[in-house]
Nucleic acid binder design. Structure first.
Length: 479
DNA sequence: TTTTGAGTTGTTCGA
DNA sequence: GTCGAACAACTCAAA
């Protein structure tokens, strides 16, 4: 056993604890841990700017845990792995499965190529509580509605969530030389150093993930069901980037939270992990999810085209303070509170009538938790064209939402400081504030804070009309 | 096959 | 200020 050298290919499983593929590789013999940055095959789904920053630090942290033995490569993964196998005596290749369509295709191809040279590939499920093929309906087709997917497909019919495992205790890593790169040569950090502030909001890496979970389990989850709606409260887990990069497994999260007892807060949080599973199931069974409307009737939706409006949204300059706060939180921290993601998302697709693709792309580039499955499924949901989508009449009002969920203005003032001195009463509708009040608060609308880029009442009616036009199109083409 | 009940997160209006 | 109803029609899941 000791002369066996096996590869463990780290991808979105950047941890040592509860990592089934890594554990299996370690059991087999001496391990060559590798990471490959493969922008070529990822193509248009190459990792976004903020996520690259996160990845850089996560890899550094993982490499430290591996005593500097993580080997870095860049380019076509199949070529790189084949070369490693050709030049060294590799007796097995291990990885945890990924579910992005391009990954699945590539993994199949690599596995087939290695089979030709008699090198076995072993893959594990390291990132889902239930894999997409475990949660099918009794007729063998995938669920398209969340509640039955989760209750019946996952909780009732599928296996219970397996218990997480500790890191392997005796890890033997090869100290051989493999023509690999230095981590810096991956060039994950931007040349213009905008990332330093972003990084300051996070403790990236496996240890940071465990601490975040522990804090949330002790403090955050106790009022989760209600508290999760208020962006100024510390009631959400903020685990999404750690889950995306696999610095923690959903199994670890599930069991740690379950340990807090059986109550509505715990149940609600677990169902949010269920939403993550649902998104992955959708992406697996509908690989066009990132691009194509799940409900094809939306293909005729009258989206508008307006670069200037899109830019105002991206930059947090719409004149609607809660929207701007969210978009600026995203830009500064690489994250946006879930409630605000919905408000900002609804504003883009329903008030501005801009295509959800624009939102999906911007979020994918700006979020540290950018995740193809979650991001695509969520944008389709907010646009109304997805699975189990929001009804047509559910159009968030950014004024009402701000007043309801950030009534003290703490969150909004944090990210839109130019409005800090504006009283609560006008914080979410500064254009209605009396001149004197604005003056006292140092606000010059159209100068240091924008006038609203659109009228909320009119745009709501326009969105409703757009949905109505959709209905007419359907009626014109009966099945 | 047919039928039945239900579907994450909202807003507005009028009583 | 609070409360309930209306806002469409459709698709999905399961019996």
């Amino acid at each position: 056993m000791s002369d066996q050298l096996v590869i463990h290919w780290f991808r979105q499983d950047l941890r040592l604890t509860d990592n089934p593929s890594f554990a299996a590789a370690v059991k087999e013999g001496k391990v060559l841990p590798i990471f490959i940055l493969d922008d070529v095959n990822a193509g248009q789904y190459a990792i976004g700017g903020a996520a690259r920053v996160w990845l850089h630090h996560s890899l550094a942290s993982l490499n430290e845990s591996l005593n500097g033995r993580l080997r870095f490569f860049r380019g076509d993964a199949q070529t790189i792995i084949s070369e490693l196998c050709r030049q060294h005596r590799i007796t097995g290749v291990y990885w945890n499965r990924c579910y992005e369509p391009w990954r699945i295709q590539q993994d199949n191809s690599i596995e087939a190529a290695l089979a030709l040279v008699n090198i076995p590939v072993s893959t594990c499920n390291g990132s889902l509580l239930w894999e997409p093929l475990e949660t099918l309906k009794s007729d063998g087709t995938p669920y398209k509605v969340f509640t039955p997917f989760y209750r019946r497909g996952c909780l009732t019919n599928a296996d219970p969530v397996r218990a997480p495992k500790p890191a392997p205790d005796k890890i033997s890593l090869t100290d051989g030389v493999f023509n690999s790169l230095q981590q810096d040569q991956l060039e994950l950090l931007p040349i213009v150093p905008w990332h330093q502030q972003l990084v300051s909001y996070w403790h990236i890496g496996e240890q940071g993930a465990q601490q975040t979970l522990e804090t949330f389990a002790r403090e955050g989850v106790t009022q989760y069901k209600e508290g999760r709606n208020f962006p100024a409260k510390k009631s959400v887990s903020r685990l999404s980037p750690y889950l995306h990069w696999g610095e923690i497994s959903p199994h670890q999260v599930w069991h740690r939270i379950q340990f807090e007892g059986d109550n509505e807060n715990v149940e609600h949080f677990k169902s949010e992990l269920g939403w993550r599973e649902f998104s992955y199931s959708l992406l697996y069974h509908f690989p066009e999810l990132p691009k194509k409307n799940l409900q094809s009737k939306f293909d005729t939706f009258p989206w508008r085209n307006d670069e200037a409006l899109l830019k105002s949204w991206q930059q947090g300059q719409t004149g609607y303070p809660i929207v701007d706060a969210g978009m600026r939180e995203l830009w500064q921290t690489g994250y946006m509170h879930n409630r605000v993601r919905m408000i900002a998302g609804s504003f883009l697709v329903k008030n501005l009538l801009l295509h959800w693709h624009h939102g999906e792309q911007w979020f994918r580039d700006c979020l540290v938790d950018a995740d193809l499955a979650n991001n695509s499924a969520s944008w389709q949901w907010i646009a109304g064209c997805g699975a189990d989508a929001a009804p047509y009449f559910r159009i968030f009002n950014p004024i009402t939402q701000g007043e309801k969920f950030d009534s003290s203005g703490e969150y909004t003032r944090r990210y839109v400081p130019e409005l800090a001195k504006l009283p609560d009463r006008y914080l979410f509708k500064p254009w209605l504030a009396p001149e004197e009040l604005l003056g006292n608060a140092g606000i010059m609308l159209g100068d240091n804070y924008p006038m609203p880029v659109i009228d909320i009442k009119h745009s709501r009616e326009r969105a409703l009309a757009a949905f109505k036009s959709l209905k007419q199109v359907i009626n014109k083409h009966p099945p």
